[in-house]
Design a protein around this nucleic acid. Structure first.
Lengths: 189, 189
DNA sequence: ATTCACCTACCAAACGGTCGGTAGGGAGAT
DNA sequence: ATCTCCCTACCGACCGTTTGGTAGGTGAAT
């Protein structure tokens, strides 16, 4: 039994039921250990949560940076980024749920470290949008607000996404991208 | 002390900290009662949660229906609906947070009743979108998916909205509406 | 006399976390 | 070869506290 096994199990249970609805016993049972034995691998319940948030952010940041560093036209870059983001969100849906829904259960001592990393993540998106503005292709004056609008749609996906549903993550991303880039209205110029 | 006072206080605390992080003692203290006295007004903690979810949905549904029943062009109707929705979400931010983030803490016995009402709510949005499609003004083939995309952005607002921030709820709604209707790309026809 | 709103005291269960103990395995010395 | 020593991984009992919920009683209003 490794620390990673425990964190994986914890991600699944906490992602499904929430941090406060999950007990150390629940986690221990999932890895077939006694509750006390968990503390040989982790130092506290908060420690588990913090680690999961880090893992989730690192996963997203590394994959997003790969897209951001590519030499692509703004429209294509944002399409790729949305695809990559949704792909990771949905294939790691429990871990992602922890990141997006449970970060408020972090105690103040852990919060500051997490928030810094979270800003790193959001600034990747902001920069992608900014590139589009600088290139004269995106018509907005508030990239931060557009980022929030965009991330809202993508993040909310985890609350309704069904892996057995009719749409694949890539298809969902593409449909969202179409709306965001071209709008809902028919262009009658 | 009325049942309503207790529910209001509960909405505030649960909305801020989450259902499982809130104890009946916390709620009792907020209304300056002893914990045991709460049970004169409510039958259980789950009862409180269920009631709050009902309240939130009723609030949103009545206000949204008012907009939906108006005789407006699809574009204007969706702009109005987004405004009204965000206005209520932000002025009742704790109650809204309970609805959007804590419904998964409802035990199965309560869930079915809630889900039915929730579908009522979402169908109002779907119909507004459908009107736009029928009028030939919205270019999409999947109104349900567009609804989810739209609601994602609006719902996610409560996770970052700051009443002292630079943007009012109406401004946020308008900016989002602009993106959704016209897209981010400059129309070079 | 009854009802209402509330209090105090209590319960069993569950919580996160600690602790002493131990089985097993590998390394070093004899 | 065997004995010693330590380390890792785990058990299971236990700690103090908190949890949601119950029961019996009290005092004021009707």
């Amino acid at each position: 039994m490794s620390r990673e096994d425990i964190l994986d199990a914890a991600a699944k249970i906490i992602g499904e039921n929430g941090y406060h609805a999950t007990s150390m016993r629940d986690i221990a049972e999932a890895v077939q250990l006694q509750k006390g034995s968990l503390y040989h691998h982790v130092s506290s319940k908060q420690d588990i949560l913090f680690e999961l948030l880090e893992q989730a952010l690192n996963l997203l940041i590394t994959h997003l940076e790969k897209v951001a560093d590519q030499n692509l036209a703004p429209e294509q870059k944002i399409r790729q980024a949305m695809r990559a983001y949704l792909e990771i969100l949905t294939t790691n849906i429990e871990l992602s749920s922890v990141l997006l829904l449970e970060h408020r259960s972090l105690k103040p001592e852990y919060q500051t470290a997490h928030i810094t990393r979270r800003d790193d993540f959001e600034s990747i998106w902001r920069e992608i949008i900014q590139e589009g503005i600088d290139a004269g292709q995106f018509k907005t004056t508030d990239p931060a607000q557009v980022t929030r609008t965009l991330l809202g749609t993508l993040n909310w996906t985890i609350t309704w996404f069904n892996p057995n549903g009719p749409l694949s993550p890539a298809e969902i991303a593409d449909q969202s991208a179409n709306v965001f880039l071209n709008g809902l209205l028919t262009c009658n110029e």
